[in-house]
Nucleic acid binder design. Structure first.
Lengths: 252, 252
DNA sequence: CGGGTTCTTGACTAGTTTCAAGCAAAGTGG
DNA sequence: CCACTTTGCTTGAAACTAGTCAAGAACCCG
């Protein structure tokens, strides 16, 4: 307990039956690694939508892996302006910064009901000294996160509103697909236009109008949060860049 | 040799006499670590300004630590639009992404004459398995890089042109100061307004005009690339946020 | 002392935000 | 079950911000 927000859920999902591990693009554990991760995971947490379970400016004793649901990382300016930095999907790790740096430099909020595996930072050293393979995986995850933000930075700095919007939706679709959340080029997206606006660095109104333009291109549909790609080639063309998918990846 | 661009320089700077190691904010090595890093470093490279020694889309056999000089990471769009992602100063590591992911997702170009320590990725596993402390340091560096880009993303998404410019100049000044490149609130910056524009996600003209406004505030001076903070409190106020400095940090 | 790069400026155009208002869907409580 | 509130989506107009074009000035290098 005393984990801050959220409801603890004990070891509801034992690592050996981890549903993520069955996904084909996730690298398997050796038996040794599995045994260690079982002891590394100290708890399982349930977070409700809208709840921030990591907060900018606080210290974090834990890092988390998303077991199910969507979350997003964000930063706020003093006057309330918000920038969403990235989204976290199942198998993504959040909170590493807080355990490595002095304190969190961003917050993380649940977008849907969220299940998290909880890992105490106190055992992180153990992981690094006994399981270099897992240490390497953590580095891999950190490098990938950086790479995602890099692309996003290019969008905000150098892409037009339309390109940027197309790129983001394609990006989120591809990641959701990798996480097994999409079928038939369609997915139920959990975010509002305000979330998109705060991700794209645009106003809500302009986001709405840009979205209309994108829908008019007949490359995608989006009604009632249900998103569908109807002409991927065209969407890629508007976004200006395709993105790789389903590369094998680690997770912890 | 066959390292791509740049001129190899052998082991011109032995690790035990590394000039960076003398900086007070950099964590010291144990003798074991030092001995290992000496074998980890395979070469030293000299790069001329304007040369890109890591290129988007290529595979990289090496990672690098900046020994002296400035570099910048950037991405280009097909039509030539460029976004500068971040700058690398002495003690910063670049190229980790290329060794962890399949290939480089960004390029890195020298801004000044640059000296680099070269580490082959083939020995990275050795580092992870034998020196968890150094593995942890690499993770730390990756997490810090991500954190810097996060702040930058907030600038591009949610700060006004003036705030953004003030924030970037303050940020670069603080980092340069940590690297020992500034004295008396002044520093010779190596970049042009075009570099700033490509970092801030603005046009050259608008960057120039915004810079003028910032200079008019009397918080900073900038003539002939010589930058000086004359009213830090005011600059911080315009930037909207101060930044921590001189925290102890690792490097390899 | 040229010739190139960088910096500066003004005028015009395009893109984006803000303001304001209306609508639709979902949730709440008597 | 129906007002009532809340949240999210949509739209138009006005104001502002930023980009583009163009040209000249300043600086830098050989």
């Amino acid at each position: 307990m005393a984990l801050g927000p959220g409801r603890t859920n004990g070891q509801a999902t034992p690592c050996e039956f981890c549903p993520l591990r069955r996904r084909p693009n996730l690298r398997p554990f050796t038996p040794d690694e599995l045994a260690f991760v079982k002891t590394f995971k100290s708890d399982e947490l349930r977070i409700e939508p809208g709840e921030s379970f990591l907060r900018e400016g606080t210290q974090s004793e834990y890092l988390y892996t998303v077991l199910s649901g969507w979350a997003f990382r964000y930063k706020m300016l003093d006057d309330g302006r918000r920038q969403i930095l990235n989204y976290a999907l199942p198998a993504d790790m959040v909170g590493l910064q807080g355990t490595v740096m002095r304190e969190m430099e961003h917050s993380v909020e649940a977008l849907t009901p969220l299940t998290l595996c909880v890992f105490p930072r106190s055992k992180l050293w153990d992981l690094y000294s006994r399981f270099p393979s897992l240490a390497f995986d953590i580095t891999w995850l950190a490098a990938r996160e950086e790479q995602l933000i890099d692309s996003h930075l290019v969008s905000l700095g150098r892409r037009t509103a339309l390109e940027r919007t197309a790129y983001l939706l394609l990006h989120l679709y591809v990641r959701a697909e990798e996480a097994g959340l999409a079928k038939n080029n369609a997915i139920q997206f959990p975010f509002t236009q305000q979330h998109l606006a705060d991700t794209l660095g645009m106003s809500l109104v302009h986001t709405n109008k840009t979205l209309k333009r994108l829908l008019a291109s007949q490359s995608v549909r989006w009604h009632n949060r249900m998103f569908e790609i109807i002409n991927r080639k065209l969407l890629v063309e508007i976004a200006g860049e395709d993105m790789a998918e389903n590369r094998p990846r680690p997770f912890i």
